[in-house]
């Protein structure tokens, strides 16, 4: 017992030490924009030119994301957890992710900054969360393209509704996806340890190069929620 206590302590100690020395990439620098379906080809073309590894093929992805929430004991702000899995790559672990409140900041800050902690999990994470008392808020599927430029990750994807009526079928409803909008969502993000603000300027420079095809901006969700 004493031994076990000891090992647990050291594990937590090393984790806190790692947190203190700022080596865990737990901050996400983030910009968002959108582009109409008609011009997405142009954007993809430009991204292929701008990003690394032009020689390789276009990297596609198809993910399924579920958002769970759990309320604290004293009815505080619910904690949101996202579970994401890849539909087109077998054998990859599912991902559990916490995303904190985005900090918009003032005009001098070029990107949105939010906390982000993610971890690979086994396939039973949904059952685990349900047992914990989490409730599924919503789910969607995202399908699109991924690019890389240095540490920056650029995703261009479309958000699809999941057909509830066909969900019982073998394909899980992923064969007949209905898109939510007629546009693609463009995200530019970097995961970094806190305090590395230099990368945000790089991101702004990169976003400048995508204008006027797509305006990557800091998007204030609160304004969207409470707006008219």
């Amino acid at each position: 017992m004493a031994m076990a206590q000891q090992t647990v302590n050291t594990a937590i100690d090393s984790l806190t030490a790692a947190l203190k020395s700022n080596i865990i990439p737990n901050q996400e620098y983030f910009l968002q924009g959108s582009i109409l379906d008609s011009s997405v080809e142009v954007l993809l073309h430009r991204l292929r030119g701008l990003c690394d590894n032009v020689d390789t093929n276009l990297e596609t992805f198809h993910d399924h994301e579920m958002c769970f929430s759990i309320r604290g004991p004293n009815n505080t702000q619910p904690l949101q957890l996202r579970v994401r899995r890849s539909l087109d790559h077998n054998g990859m672990p599912m991902q559990l992710r916490y995303i904190g409140q985005p900090e918009i900041g003032d005009k001098s800050r070029p990107t949105v900054l939010r906390n982000s902690i993610d971890i690979g999990t086994s396939n039973t994470v949904v059952e685990f969360l349900t047992e914990l008392g989490c409730r599924k808020d919503f789910e969607y599927s995202a399908k699109g393209y991924m690019f890389r430029k240095g540490r920056m990750k650029i995703t261009v994807f479309k958000v699809f509704k999941i057909d509830e009526t066909r969900k019982m079928m073998s394909s899980g409803g992923f064969d007949a996806l209905s898109p939510l909008t007629h546009s693609y969502l463009v995200e530019l993000s970097v995961l970094a340890p806190s305090g590395q603000d230099a990368i945000a300027d790089d991101m702004r420079c990169f976003a400048e190069q995508l204008r006027p095809l797509v305006q990557l901006e800091k998007i204030d969700y609160k304004r969207l929620v409470h707006g008219p």
């Binding site: 990439p25 992805f61 996202r82 790559h89 990859m92 991902q95 992710r97 993610d118 994807f157």
Partner: peptide, 11 residues
């Protein structure tokens, strides 16, 4: 570097 799948993972 390999791309992450699901796409929200780190590179």
């Amino acid at each position: 570097h390999p791309f992450p799948h699901p796409s929200s993972g780190p590179i």
